[in-house]
Amino acid sequence: MLAFLLWVAALALVVSSFNGVGFSAAEFVKGLPQMGRFAAGLFPPSLDRIEPVLWSLLETFQMAIAGTVIGVILSVPFAILSARRLSPHPVVQWLARALVSLFRTVPDLIWALFFVVTVGLGPFAGTLALIVDTVGFCGRFFAEAMEEADRGPQEALSALGARKGAIIACAVLPAALPSMIATSLFSLEKATRSSVVLGLVGAGGIGMELEVALTFFNYPEAATIILAIFVLVLIVEQLSGMFRRRIIT
């Protein structure tokens, strides 16, 4: 009976969600010509400003790389402090977890706005936002990987008189490393996609170019930028996937 009631409640939630967002197939079909006109305006893509677009794309990638590398490095101590059995004290563990949750739950766009106010417009603000976002993402998954590490080697090193730091360095990190590298590569993919959006609020990168192109209805140039972003994200995802497969095997 309880299971039936749960199913009914779940169904009611789905139906009310469709109503709440004004989901309408008719409206969508009515808007298709508009979409067609917009899509047609994008073609052919304009290569007039290809050079500044490519420089902005490089800046975007640099933001993603710098933000991910620093974020991953900072995530390690956060993960250790927030992992069960590794944290030095329950209060420290709670604080570290709360901070990592805060970094993760506040959207990167909000962090970007925060840092644009702090350090001004440009890629540095975007990079800081990516660092915070990466710590929020990697901090959690690194901690989980460390908690799942086989306890046998840890007990063996504890039994031979090793300090906690040595146990983490010699038994926990080697066990968690494949998962941590895979998470870091996911994080790089995520940062590459995010760094595009961050430009929309003035935090550097190709997003700023896209925003200007769309504001001035320069759709052919916007198309070039979108295609450039697509290629960059695709390359990063392919390379990251290739590295992950190599790590797993």
Binding site: E155, A166, C170, A171, A175
Partner: peptide, 28 residues
């Protein structure tokens, strides 16, 4: 202390695992 399931660190070399025996006196 020798455990039933050896409890070696699997991804490290045999030599590194043996060197670990000195962690108590030599530290990191």
């Amino acid at each position: 202390f020798v455990f039933q399931k050896h409890n070696l660190v699997p991804r490290l070399s045999v030599l590194s695992n043996v060197v670990h025996g000195a962690l108590g006196r030599a530290g990191l």
